[in-house]
């Protein structure tokens, strides 16, 4: 991403937010909350980045995105359950392998079902936002019921791998190992996406398509195919985000998808529709705000994300880093 001057102003919100919170609490608390906020931000980023690309590239509003978050979470429960032996073992290798298996299984199955969903529902509603909302909200409801049919309506516990259960001390603050793992995974995915988007021809086509899909077609590229790939990548990442979130909460309920959908839409709107970098920044802002406010005034936590959304939109009505459509 080539950062223009105004992009730096948007990015500066992150340190600004962290610095504003600092005087209100002790340093160890601040460190712990900042790491927690970053971890939540990374998971939100995983869940949201597909949504923003799907909208950016094909102008498709997919309210069923949350179903893939739920699915990823439930798949993580099943895979971790099946690999309980590895997950419970003391060493790094089996624990990480169990988590990796859960994450990869979620990604793969969500990608396949994403392709099916694109084929059965999304491609019938190109061009009409109203139909997209109706069909994808319908899809979300059906998917939730299917999840209940498979995994039941009761909340399911999910045990983190033993090696990711504890915490370590950093600057006087106790940091949960799992949160660090979430941060590392989120950064790795962001870096990977950044390289894919900026260093490959496929990424070049996606960036061009987000801006002007007609011209991409007039240059001879079949954008529908590209979109199916992006849709699959987006649902796969939603599954990864859901799987990581399940481990973070150590509990999965059917409501996870709809709950997260609200946050994910806030993230995407704050970041600017179609922008991966904006999504990353927006997710971190939401994660940090939720954690700082959740500590200082627990009752205001959800309200604070909405307040953040309002403030950002008053400043930049199209989000922090909107992609210009031509």
């Amino acid at each position: 991403m080539n950062l223009a001057k105004q992009d730096w102003a948007g990015l500066a919100l992150l340190p600004a937010l962290a610095l504003i919170a600092l005087p209100a609490m002790s340093l160890p608390t601040w460190i712990a909350l900042t790491v927690a906020g970053a971890a939540m931000g990374m998971m939100l980023f995983l869940m949201a980045t597909g949504l923003t690309l799907i909208f950016g590239l094909m102008d498709v509003l997919n309210f069923a995105h949350g179903a893939f978050i739920s699915l990823g979470a439930f798949l993580a429960v099943s895979v971790m359950g099946a690999l309980a032996g590895w997950a419970g073992a003391p060493g790094w290798l089996p624990g990480i392998a169990a988590l990796a298996a859960a994450v990869l299984a979620s990604a793969a199955i969500c990608a396949l079902l994403g392709a099916a969903f694109e084929f059965v529902i999304i491609r019938r509603v190109y061009g009409s936002h109203l139909q997209q909302i109706l069909m994808t909200v319908g899809g979300l409801i059906v998917a939730q019921q299917l999840l209940v049919a498979v995994w039941g309506a009761q909340p399911l516990p999910l045990a983190r791998p033993a090696v990711l259960r504890g915490s370590f001390v950093l600057g006087g603050a106790a940091i949960e190992t799992y949160r660090m793992a979430a941060v590392v995974l989120g950064l790795a995915v962001f870096a990977g996406l950044h390289l894919l988007l900026n260093r490959t021809r496929l990424g070049l086509l996606v960036r061009a398509g987000v801006e002007n899909r007609e011209m991409v077609e007039a240059l001879g590229y079949r954008i529908r195919r590209l979109f199916v790939l992006v849709f699959m990548a987006g649902t796969a990442l939603a599954g990864v985000g859901g799987a990581m979130w399940a481990g973070y909460q150590e509990m999965v309920t059917v409501a996870i998808g709809t709950d997260m959908t609200i946050l994910v839409f806030i993230v995407v709107i704050i970041g600017g529709l179609g922008s991966v970098g904006g999504c990353f920044t927006g997710a971190l802002l939401v994660g940090l705000t939720t954690n700082y406010v959740g500590f200082l005034a627990p009752k205001l936590a959800l309200g604070s994300t909405i307040a953040l959304l309002v403030v950002v939109l008053l400043w930049r009505p199209r989000g922090l880093f909107p992609v210009a459509r031509t």
Binding site: R207, A208, E211, M215, A218, L219, V323, A324
Partner: peptide, 21 residues
Amino acid sequence: YVPESMGIFTQLTVRENMLLA
């Protein structure tokens, strides 16, 4: 095809715009 609106991708570099062709 060069459309009336030119169809330049403003977020891409000059090089990337040309590379697409």
